[in-house]
Design a protein around this nucleic acid. Structure first.
Lengths: 236, 236
DNA sequence: TCAGTTCTAGTCATTATGACTTTAACTACC
DNA sequence: GGTAGTTAAAGTCATAATGACTAGAACTGA
């Protein structure tokens, strides 16, 4: 790669460039246990810096799209997926995030449903990884994923985020599996049940899930909206 | 103001520019009741767009400083103050935030202590306003302040943010006044006391505050650290 | 029919919370 | 110098939320 002295000087004085990246979470059955676990799609860097390493999907912000639209777009472009939840995570702007130039990255995090996630594109340069086994990523992306995980766990405990991992109808055991996968610990089914039932956004459908090898569980529906984020506030 | 067709075309294709703004909160005694209330310093716009209107302090991000440093700097430059707490709020990047060009603003919010706040610079173009009586601000700054207020109230309820409004030593009544000012409602002194006492980060000094016209209250000290924010995580 | 499984409902002890009462310790005023 | 006024501090009580646990209901597969 050719780099003139003039280019270096330009880079030093040019305004920091602005990029959008996204941490995408989906639940997929673990290879071993079959229980759902957290997975994240990454893309392989095909040029320097960090050529060959895996990195979060991302790209520059184009002039005609909002930050959220840009995040949505690069989600679509890399994985072919539409997110069921999308929220801004943080703007990372440390001086030495990239060795070659100053980059400010506005990072989003997203949840996708398993039906979607099953259809996700995968290729030589796009692959899904278990969130707890990522290895060394490009740039500061390990730290970014850690923070996204922290936020996801937090939101799960307070807010009503878990349902965006699931389809329209779900059993309480499925909700519990989401919590167990994300928080990485077992929860008491009876107590968990009591808590979820008591939240007003959860509606009992008359239906039952048939086909299990045990008592058929009731199916529920989520009736709430996300919204806390400024971007999601006015959206109806 | 002169604008050539070429300039318009350039603006339309140029990358979005990046700015840092800060919502600064301090408690000051209300003029009437003397009780502490929330105040915010604003700067007057001296050029278009929104010339004459009040706006959040801010400016461009320079090449050699981190986002947090830039926020600190424009805090220092506009008010002369050093923040006791500084955290990233959100990156605002809507397409039409500014009528003249595309601007992405990374906004921080800060708390300053009253001893500091008393020394704050004020001038023709820098003035403090009560947070609940701001009037119409430039750009989308009303929405930004609303969101900052929401975050402040949230952090107060969960985290241990209140002490950054206070000096090193404080009485429990002073802590309660902070909560009452921010949450804008009265709290039961006895119950509030019980809660604060039970948090491990609060340490009872042997001292008492003398000089009141009633029983002298104990003085306490805060021993915790902020840190949740990625920027504040590794900072010791 | 019975063993195995999960779903669902319920009990019980512990803890946190809100409303309230009482006593302590100081000042100011008559 | 006594008393009223004020806030600090400690404690009571009922209610709500939580975690650990028990037991019956409802299905499948052998």
């Amino acid at each position: 790669m050719y780099t003139s002295a003039a280019n270096v000087a330009e880079r030093r004085t040019a305004p920091p460039s602005l990029a959008i990246s996204t941490v995408i979470f989906a639940l997929r059955p673990s290879e071993k246990s079959g229980r759902p676990t957290l997975w994240i799609p990454l893309v392989r860097r095909i040029r320097e810096p960090f050529k060959g390493l895996w990195a979060l999907p991302g790209g520059p912000l184009t002039h005609s799209e909002s930050l959220q639209d840009a995040a949505s777009r690069n989600l679509q472009e890399t994985t072919g997926l539409a997110p069921s939840y999308l929220e801004q995570l943080y703007a990372f702007g440390g001086l030495h995030r990239s060795p070659t130039q100053r980059v400010v990255s506005i990072v989003y995090w997203a949840l996708v449903q398993p039906t979607e996630a099953a259809l996700a594109d995968e290729s030589e340069n796009v692959r899904w990884f278990r969130a707890d086994r990522l290895g060394d990523l490009a740039f500061d992306h390990n730290a970014i994923v850690d923070y996204a995980l922290w936020r996801l766990r937090n939101k799960l405990a307070y807010g009503s985020i878990a349902y965006h991992f699931l389809g329209e109808y779900f059993t309480l055991a499925q909700v519990r599996e989401v919590y167990e996968a994300v928080l990485d610990r077992q929860l008491d089914p009876a107590n968990f049940r009591r808590q979820i039932i008591s939240t007003p956004e959860i509606e009992e459908t008359g239906e039952y899930l048939q086909g299990g090898k045990h008592r058929p569980p009731r199916l529920y529906r989520f009736t709430g909206r996300p919204g806390l984020d400024p971007d999601n506030r006015s959206t109806p």
